[in-house]
C-alpha cells in the first residue's frame, strides 16, 4: 500500500517535470508546433544589418510571419546576406516588397518588417528582396544631424 502511494507520488513528480517542460516550451519560449516544411526561404541583402540576429522575427504590419535563419557576409558585395523563413501560409507577398530593419522600442531588439509592394507576382522559395532598407544607425543619424546634413 505504501509502495502504491509512493508510485503515484513519483508518477505525479515526473508528470510535473513534463508539464514544466511544456510550460517552458509554450508559454516561456513561445514555441509553436510547426513542422519545418511549413516555411519557405527568401533572401535579402543589407548594407548594414545592425543588430539583426538569427531567430529575430520577420513581420508584416506588426504581425509575425516568419523568422531569420542566418545573417552572414556576402564575400563579393560585402553586404549582409539575411536568410529568412516565411510561413508557408503567407504565400502572397508581392515580389516588389521591401525588407526594412526596424527596432522595437528605443533599445529593443531589431527585426525585419516587410513593407508590401504592388506587384501581381508573389515572392517564392529562393527569391530575393530587391529593395531593402538598412538598420537605422542612431550614432550616424546623430552625427549627420550635428553636421547639418540631416536638417534641410
Amino acid at each position: 500500500m505504501v509502495q502504491r502511494t509512493t508510485e503515484i507520488i513519483v508518477g505525479l513528480f515526473i508528470l510535473a517535470g513534463g508539464a514544466a517542460l511544456l510550460f517552458l516550451a509554450l508559454q516561456v519560449s513561445g514555441l509553436t508546433f510547426r513542422s519545418a516544411g511549413d516555411t519557405y526561404t527568401v533572401y535579402a541583402y543589407f548594407n548594414d544589418a545592425g543588430g539583426l540576429a538569427p531567430r529575430s522575427r520577420v513581420s508584416m504590419a506588426g504581425v509575425e510571419v516568419g523568422q531569420i535563419r542566418e545573417v552572414a557576409l556576402d564575400h563579393e558585395t560585402f553586404q549582409a546576406r539575411v536568410v529568412m523563413d516565411i510561413a508557408a501560409a503567407i504565400d502572397s507577398i508581392p515580389a516588389d516588397s521591401s525588407a526594412i530593419i526596424r527596432t522595437s522600442g528605443l533599445l529593443g531588439e531589431q527585426y525585419i518588417d516587410i513593407s508590401p509592394g504592388a506587384d501581381m507576382e508573389s515572392l517564392a522559395d529562393g527569391d530575393t528582396f530587391y529593395e531593402t532598407q538598412s538598420a537605422l544607425n542612431i550614432e550616424r543619424m546623430i552625427s549627420n544631424f550635428a553636421s547639418g546634413q540631416g536638417g534641410d
Partner: peptide, 19 residues
Amino acid sequence: YWGNMQASVTFADDVLNGL
C-alpha cells in the same frame, strides 16, 4: 511580460540547453 519573454527565449537554445 510574456510577449518579451516569448520573443527572446528560444526552445532549442535556452530551454534545451538548460535541460
